[in-house]
Simulated assay, not measured.
Amino acid sequence: MGTCVTGAAALARHTGPAVYDGLCAVLYGALVAAWLAAAAAGTVRGLVSGALLAAPRPAPSAPRPATGRTTSGAAR
């Protein structure tokens, strides 16, 4: 969506017709509406699930044991 708005703005700037300026305004309004809808949906989902206002989990008492191997590229 943002790429479409940017392209329409560039087209309006380089060609000049007023119809492209109107297109930019409509597309930018749709972009802002999409941002607001996504932010509202994420906030509501976090509030309903309780994850947004939940306290942080306690830190582990000891680090987990490492199970992965690393190679240095040295002669084997």
Rank of each mutant, 00 (worst) to 15 (best):
M1P: 10
G2M: 13
C4E: 13
C4S: 15
V5L: 10
V5F: 07
G7W: 03
G7D: 13
A9Y: 11
A9N: 12
A10Y: 02
L11Y: 10
A12Y: 07
R13M: 11
H14Q: 04
H14C: 08
T15I: 05
G16R: 05
G16P: 13
P17L: 09
A18W: 07
A18F: 06
V19H: 06
G22P: 02
A25S: 03
V26N: 02
Y28G: 02
Y28M: 10
Y28S: 08
G29Y: 04
G29H: 03
A30W: 08
L31C: 12
V32E: 06
A33F: 07
A33W: 03
A33D: 03
A34N: 08
W35L: 09
W35G: 05
L36T: 14
A37T: 14
A38T: 05
A38C: 11
A39G: 01
A39D: 09
A39V: 11
A40P: 00
A40T: 13
A40S: 10
V44I: 14
R45W: 08
G46T: 07
G46A: 07
L47R: 13
L47M: 12
L47G: 02
L47P: 00
L47Q: 08
V48Q: 09
V48C: 02
G50F: 08
G50H: 04
A51W: 02
L52D: 04
L52P: 01
L52Y: 03
A54P: 04
A54V: 02
A55Y: 03
P56E: 06
R57H: 08
P60I: 01
P60V: 04
P60D: 14
A62Q: 13
A62F: 00
P63E: 12
P63K: 03
R64M: 06
R64Q: 07
R64W: 08
R64N: 03
P65V: 09
P65L: 13
A66N: 06
G68S: 15
R69T: 13
R69N: 07
T70V: 14
T70F: 07
T71G: 05
T71I: 09
G73K: 13
G73D: 13
A74I: 02
A74F: 12
A75V: 15
A75Y: 12
R76Q: 11
R76C: 14
R76N: 01
